[in-house]
Design a protein around this nucleic acid. Structure first.
Lengths: 242, 242
DNA sequence: CGATATGTTGATGTAATTCAACCGCAGTGG
DNA sequence: CCACTGCGGTTGAATTACATCAACATATCG
């Protein structure tokens, strides 16, 4: 029913780079598709732990994740870090750099990954010719804004267990959109990285996961997660709202 | 030296609507400027407390704030709210709606305000013709992403007083960019609204402000703020980083 | 003017952090 | 081969920063 999730990496999200299907599901005819495909080059492989770009790097391209898993994080002066997102196959990464022609966060591969590079000025050129591509680019940018604002809501008003439940349900949904099982998947990140994303210490993440497990809502073994009760997870968001 | 800050509203940021100067400081010749100006209609006046748009409203236009002050906020199912931003004259509001053709937050006037409406599809049309306008629109979208991610850092890793100091310094900088005093201005929002933005209860906001005042870094009387020691405020960000 | 909003401050409670001990595992090297 | 080490993860105990509850003060507005 679902594609199996392989141990070490997600399947390619796309054919050439398949921006049509997932990254850019845009109404284009075959000639236009070809023009879009011609923009895009296979950037190559990033081993687990390697850096796609660093804060301060010159911005020149967006990246479409073909296979694998990334995290993005910002660091401030005094060394604090905040994971700003986890990106999986089929998602676009690098939007932060457009503003100042320099990236403002680091992008790190959490497993061996393949990305396609989309030179941004060429994408702008083409999107001036193809209104539906233009519109789609705007949606991608706006979607990131909406997504970030929902994380702000999470960070500003949810308790630890609610944050975890929200996080797991979000991952579940995205795996489902990628064609994988929504109830059984591998976490690609450490407890520390989850905590950085959710504004919690790693011990708190561990405790909250243990508690969800004790409540029979999930089953965890190392990094493999099984969601036992989707509605229970949903229900625990909003409990004891403040 | 600085324009005085009037009691009830900021001065217009612009001439017709002055997207050139602040909202869209774009390199355009006079013909192109006129074409841009022709897109933009004076939307009119919003009294304090009135709603520019609500979550769920159909998205059709961006808004450039000509005078006044807004907040944007999202509400989730169980009634929690999160202020996602405070916008002042010269800033663009409504980017959240592009993604799904519907707004995802409420925009509320915190004082009597004037906005100009920029029909989005027409802006897209024109930006296909004018590369520098296109580039600028992309920067505006990306800037919002970067801004939101910095709020994520604040919400995820800063203590109450650091959040307040960061917030006040940000306001200060934006007032300075608008030509007003960076050290003396009126807060347009309640303690509750500040707290909603910073992920704190209003009592905590009040206490943190009192403490900054006791430390001689600021002087507050009701909503009028004076920053007594800019560097001291900066220094208190990062103290006892966790 | 009184009524309602907003803001301050104190006392108390609590969720999350901090600190620490411990386990299992993978990689390393004697 | 097995001790040694480092890393990721779990769990317990003590601490703390913030929330909550409550009383009161001040400002705003019809």
């Amino acid at each position: 029913m679902h594609k199996p999730v392989p141990g070490n990496s997600l399947k390619p999200a796309c054919s050439t780079c398949n921006l049509r299907k997932l990254c850019l599901p845009v109404n284009l005819n075959s000639v236009e598709i070809t023009r879009l495909d011609n923009l895009i080059s296979r950037k190559g492989v990033y081993r687990q732990g390697s850096i796609l770009y660093r804060s301060g790097d010159k911005f020149q391209a967006l990246y479409a994740i073909r296979t694998g898993f990334f995290k993005t994080q910002i660091l401030n002066e005094d060394g604090r870090e905040q994971a700003t997102g986890f990106q999986m196959a089929g998602e676009i990464i690098g939007l932060d750099g457009i503003n100042s022609d320099a990236h403002t966060c680091d992008a790190v591969a959490l497993e061996d990954s393949e990305v396609c590079e989309i030179p941004f000025s060429k994408l702008e050129d083409l999107s001036r010719e193809l209104p539906s591509l233009q519109r789609h680019l705007h949606r991608i940018l706006s979607r990131e804004i909406v997504r970030d604002q929902n994380i702000m809501l999470l960070l500003g008003s949810m308790r630890a267990e609610e944050r975890l439940a929200t996080f797991l349900l979000n991952l579940s949904q995205r795996f489902a959109e990628g064609g994988y099982s929504p109830t059984s998947f591998q976490l690609r990140m450490t407890r520390q990285e989850i905590g950085s994303y959710l504004g919690l210490r790693l011990e708190t993440v561990s405790r909250a996961l243990s508690h969800l497990q004790d409540s029979k809502l999930i089953h965890m073994r190392n990094r493999s997660l099984e969601i036992l009760c989707m509605s229970g997870l949903q229900a625990c968001i909003g409990k004891r709202a403040r």
